[in-house]
């Protein structure tokens, strides 16, 4: 399987960071960056990572299924992650989550029919003092109000 030249360069750099007999350390970073490029952790990617790190595909599967940020199903173009953990919850995070599910008609780890947006209720993302917080892909949005969320979703292409 071939990756973009940028990702290949990144992977090469990754391997150079770990001792030569510890290529396995690159498993999680490789999965994360490749997922960003491919859209999900496909079977093919699992086998490729296994091949490059010298472990079995099963050992890669063990990792993939453990970590919350590795997804085997394709996500939406914009993956909207709404924190409802304690600090966000105290500041309306739960309500934002409900608002998003209603507006989009999709639930946790579901993708809108047009593939533009997927939703995930997430655990604390480290934005507690600027709650409630939302992450769209890797971008943080702090102190999100219902109105701001509405605008965000519209911008991301959600139907009215």
């Amino acid at each position: 399987m071939t990756f973009s030249p940028e990702l290949e360069a990144k992977i090469e750099r990754m391997f150079s960071q770990y001792p030569p007999d510890r290529r396995r350390s690159a498993v999680i970073p490789m999965l994360m960056y490749a997922q960003d490029e491919i859209g999900s952790v496909t079977r093919e990617l699992v086998e490729e990572v296994a091949r490059r790190t010298g472990i079995t595909p099963l050992a890669v599967d063990e990792v993939v299924t453990y970590y919350s940020m590795l997804h085997r199903m394709p996500l939406g173009k914009s993956h909207v992650q709404i924190c409802t953990n304690i600090s966000c919850m105290l500041n309306g995070g739960t309500e934002l989550w409900e608002q998003a599910t209603r507006r989009l008609g999709i639930g946790h780890k579901e993708v809108s029919a047009d593939g533009k947006i997927s939703l995930e209720e997430v655990e604390c993302m480290g934005a507690c003092s600027w709650a409630p917080a939302i992450q769209v892909n890797y971008d943080f949005y702090h102190q999100v109000t219902p109105q701001k969320l509405d605008e965000m979703l519209t911008q991301l292409g959600a139907a009215r």
């Binding site: 999680i28 999965l31 994360m32 960056y33 970590y67 940020m69 590795l70």
Partner: peptide, 12 residues
Amino acid sequence: FHLATHTGAGAY
């Protein structure tokens, strides 16, 4: 002395 970053993937 060398230093590098390493990303996690979501696990408390």
